[in-house]
Lab assay of single mutants.
Amino acid sequence: NQESVVAAVLIPINTALTVGMMTTRVVSPTGAPAEDIPRLISMQVNQVVPMGTTLMPDMVKGYAP
């Protein structure tokens, strides 16, 4: 099972992602793949992402898996 990126903390809208904001988990439906964490760092979210929420590609500005 592939791990997806999950918010480790509450991420406010327009916040640039840091490694400490993200964790990985096997979830369904799958979100952004765990191996993309290095690409996701410094990208901004376009909505509030509550802690424990799977990071879906459409939540991150300019990100395409």
Rank of each mutant, 00 (worst) to 15 (best):
T30Y: 15
L17R: 00
T15I: 07
M43C: 13
T30E: 12
P57Q: 04
N1Y: 13
T24H: 10
G62N: 12
I13H: 05
V26N: 11
A8R: 11
S42M: 10
V26R: 14
R25F: 09
V27W: 09
Q44A: 07
P29L: 05
V49S: 01
V45K: 00
P50V: 09
M51W: 07
V9C: 15
A16D: 05
V48R: 13
V45M: 05
P12E: 10
T24R: 13
Q2C: 12
P33R: 07
I37Q: 04
I41F: 00
T23E: 10
P50F: 10
R25N: 08
T54C: 07
K61G: 05
M21I: 06
S28N: 13
V5I: 14
V9D: 02
T53L: 03
P12A: 08
Q44V: 15
P33W: 06
M21W: 07
V6N: 01
N46V: 10
P65K: 09
P12L: 09
V19M: 14
M21F: 07
A34I: 06
P57W: 15
D58F: 15
A32H: 03
P33T: 03
I11L: 00
P33G: 03
L17H: 02
M43S: 05
V45R: 00
A16Q: 12
P33A: 05
S42T: 11
T15S: 10
P38H: 12
M56A: 02
D58S: 14
A34H: 03
T15A: 12
V26E: 07
M59F: 06
M22Y: 01
P29R: 05
S28M: 13
S28Q: 13
P50E: 11
A34Q: 03
A7S: 05
M43F: 06
M56D: 04
N14C: 10
A32Y: 14
T24M: 08
T53H: 13
P65M: 12
Y63M: 05
I37D: 04
P12Y: 09
G31Q: 01
T15K: 02
L40M: 03
A16R: 15
Q2Y: 13
Y63S: 03
L40S: 00
V6Y: 03
V19E: 13
L10Y: 13
P57S: 07
I13V: 13
T23F: 09
D58L: 07
T23R: 06
T30V: 15
L40N: 00
I11C: 07
R25K: 13
V6L: 07
V49W: 04
L40V: 02
L40G: 00
R25D: 09
V6G: 01
E35R: 15
N46S: 09
L55Y: 04
P50Q: 10
Y63D: 04
P57D: 02
D58W: 15
A7V: 07
P29S: 05
A8W: 08
T24D: 08
Q47G: 01
S28P: 00
K61D: 14
V60S: 00
A64K: 15
T54S: 03
Q2G: 14
R25P: 08
M22F: 04
M22S: 07
M51D: 06
A16V: 14
P65A: 12
S42L: 08
L17V: 05
A64T: 15
T23L: 12
M51R: 14
S42V: 07
Q44D: 04
V48S: 13
E3T: 08
G31H: 05
T23Q: 08
E3S: 12
S28T: 14
V49H: 03
T23M: 12
T53G: 08
I37M: 11
N14M: 08
P33V: 06
G62H: 07
G20F: 11
K61A: 11
K61H: 12
G20A: 14
V26Y: 13
N14V: 06
P50C: 10
L40E: 03
T23C: 11
A64Q: 15
G52N: 07
D58I: 08
S4D: 02
P65S: 12
V27F: 01
M59L: 08
Q44S: 10
N46E: 02
E35F: 14
T24C: 09
M56V: 04
V9S: 03
V6T: 02
N1G: 15
V49P: 02
L10Q: 07
P65T: 11
P57L: 08
T24L: 09
G62Y: 06
A64Y: 15
Q47K: 03
M56C: 08
L55Q: 05
I13A: 14
D58E: 14
V9A: 05
I11S: 02
I13P: 10
T54H: 04
D36T: 01
D36V: 02
N1Q: 14
M59I: 02
V19I: 14
A32F: 15
T23P: 07
T15F: 09
A8K: 11
P33I: 04
K61W: 12
D36A: 03
T23Y: 10
L10I: 07
Q47T: 11
V9N: 02
Y63W: 06
V5P: 00
N46P: 01
V19S: 13
S28V: 14
R25C: 11
R25G: 11
V27Y: 02
L55W: 04
A64F: 15
I13N: 12
S4L: 06
V45N: 02
T54Y: 06
R39Q: 10
T30D: 09
E3N: 07
T30A: 15
E35S: 15
P65F: 09
M21N: 07
T23I: 12
T15E: 04
T53C: 13
T23G: 07
S28W: 15
S4A: 02
M22H: 06
M21Y: 04
M59D: 03
S42K: 07
K61S: 11
S42P: 01
D58M: 10
I13L: 10
V19W: 15
E3D: 05
I11D: 01
A64I: 15
G31E: 01
M56G: 01
G52D: 05
N46W: 09
M43P: 02
M56Y: 06
T54E: 04
V26K: 12
G20D: 13
V6C: 08
G52Y: 06
G20P: 08
Q44L: 11
P65I: 13
G62L: 05
A32W: 14
A8G: 04
N46K: 09
G20M: 13
E35I: 13
Y63N: 03
I11H: 00
Q2A: 12
T24A: 13
T24N: 07
P50I: 09
I37H: 01
T15R: 01
L40W: 06
V26S: 10
P29V: 05
P12D: 10
V45Y: 03
L55D: 02
T23W: 10
P65R: 08
E3P: 12
L55H: 02
I41Y: 00
K61V: 14
M56N: 04
T18K: 11
N46T: 11
E3L: 14
N46Y: 08
R39G: 05
V27L: 01
G31A: 03
V19G: 09
I37C: 06
E35P: 04
N1E: 13
M59G: 05
G31W: 04
